[in-house]
C-alpha cells in the first residue's frame, strides 16, 4: 500500500492514516477541558464539517457550481424536527430520515444538472431552490410554525443517551462526523469517486469512455444531500429551535467560504474550512460590527495567496496530504 515517496517526504501516507485516526481520538479530551461555550463551538464545527464535506463533493469533486446546500441543510433540520415534534419519532431514526429526505432533495437538485445546465446558470437556479424552501418554511405555518420556528422536544435520546447538554451532544456529533467523513472518503476513493472527478476534469471524454456520467452526477448530488441532511438534523439539536432565518442566502455563502478556504475537493480541507470559519467569527466578536469586513478580507486573501485553500499549506509539509482520487 505504501507509496514510494519516502525520500522526499517526512510523513508516509501510511503514517498519515494513523494520524487521521488519532485526531478524533485526541478530540475526546475536549469535553473535559472546555466550558459549555467552547464546547458549543466545537459542536458547531462538527456540524459544519459535515456541511462542508457534503458541499465539497459537488463544488470540489464534481466541479459543479450548485448552491442548493442550504436547502439540503434546512430540509434535514426540518425533517428531523418535524418527525420528532409531531411523530414522536426517536432522534436516531429521525437522523436516518433526514439523510433520506436530504438525498431526495439532492436528487431533485441533480435534475437541473442533468438538463445540461452548468456553471452560473446552475448556481442561480440552485440558489432559487434554497430561497423557495425558505419561503416554504416561513409560510408552512401549521407545520413549521413559520417565523417562530419549531422548538424541538426537551427529552431527546441518541441510542439511549440523553442529549440534554453540550457534552453528550459532542460525543454523538463526533461519532456521526467520523462515520460520515470516513464513508465519504471511502466513496471518493472508490471507482465511483474517480468517475465523479473524471466528470469534473472532462465531462465529454468521460462520457466517451462509456461511463454513465448522468448516473454519477445524480449519485454525487444524492450523497451530498444525505450528508448535509444529517448535518441539518444535528444542527436542529444543536440550536434546539429550527428557524427559517437560519437557512438564508448568507448561510450558503458561509458554506461556500468554508469549502474554498479549506480547499476544494479535499476532505481534510473541508474539516479545516469548517474549523477556520466557525472559530474566526467567534474570535472577531471582540471587534463588534466588523464581521462582514473580516470575512470578506480573509476569503479574498486566501483566494489570492492560497488558491488551493489552507490545506495546500499541509502539502508543503508532505505530499502525502494530497488526496489522490486518480493517477496523475
Amino acid at each position: 500500500m505504501e507509496k514510494k515517496n519516502g525520500n522526499t517526504s517526512l510523513i508516509t501516507s501510511n503514517q498519515l492514516r494513523w494520524f487521521y485516526y488519532l485526531v478524533p481520538v485526541a478530540a475526546l479530551i475536549i469535553p473535559f477541558v472546555a466550558n459549555e461555550y467552547l464546547l458549543w463551538i466545537v459542536n458547531a464545527i462538527l456540524v459544519y464539517t459535515l456541511v462542508t464535506v457534503g458541499f465539497n463533493i459537488i463544488i470540489g469533486n464534481l466541479g459543479q457550481l450548485a448552491f442548493a446546500n442550504t436547502a439540503f441543510f434546512g430540509i434535514g433540520a426540518y425533517t428531523s424536527a418535524i418527525l420528532m415534534v409531531y411523530g414522536g419519532v426517536p432522534y436516531t431514526l429521525s437522523i436516518l430520515m433526514s439523510a433520506i429526505v436530504g438525498g431526495l432533495a439532492g436528487f431533485l437538485a441533480s435534475v437541473t444538472a442533468l438538463r445540461g445546465i452548468r456553471l452560473y446558470y446552475l448556481a442561480i437556479i440552485t440558489l432559487a431552490f434554497g430561497e423557495l424552501m425558505r419561503w416554504v418554511y416561513l409560510h408552512g405555518d401549521d407545520v413549521t410554525k413559520g417565523s417562530d420556528g419549531l422548538r424541538i422536544p426537551d427529552d431527546i435520546f441518541f441510542l439511549g443517551i440523553p442529549l440534554d447538554s453540550e457534552v453528550p451532544k459532542f460525543f454523538v456529533f463526533l461519532l456521526l462526523a467520523v462515520l460520515l467523513v470516513k464513508a465519504t472518503s471511502n466513496l471518493m476513493r472508490s471507482r465511483i469517486g474517480r468517475a465523479i472527478v473524471a466528470i469534473r476534469e472532462n465531462e465529454a471524454t468521460t462520457a466517451s469512455l462509456g461511463i454513465h456520467t448522468a448516473r454519477y452526477i445524480v449519485l454525487a448530488f444524492v450523497w451530498s444531500g444525505s450528508v448535509v441532511g444529517v448535518a441539518g438534523a444535528m444542527f436542529a439539536v444543536l440550536t434546539e429551535r429550527v428557524l427559517p432565518e437560519a437557512f438564508g442566502l448568507t448561510e450558503v455563502i458561509i458554506h461556500f467560504g468554508m469549502v474554498l478556504v479549506g480547499g476544494t475537493g479535499s476532505i481534510v480541507g473541508s474539516v479545516i474550512g469548517a474549523i477556520t470559519l466557525t472559530t474566526l467569527p467567534e474570535y472577531f466578536r471582540q471587534f463588534p460590527g466588523m464581521d462582514e469586513l473580516f470575512f470578506g478580507i480573509i476569503i479574498v486573501l486566501v483566494l489570492l495567496f492560497l488558491p488551493k485553500g489552507i490545506v495546500s499549506l499541509l502539502w508543503r509539509i508532505s505530499p502525502a496530504f494530497k488526496e489522490r482520487y486518480y493517477r496523475d
Binding site: 469535553p31 473535559f32 443517551i161 440523553p162 440534554d164 447538554s165 457534552v167 453528550p168 460525543f171
Partner: peptide, 9 residues
C-alpha cells in the same frame, strides 16, 4: 468517554 461525560454533567 461518553459515559464519563454524562457523569461529569
Amino acid at each position: 468517554a461518553m459515559a464519563l461525560g454524562v457523569l461529569l454533567i
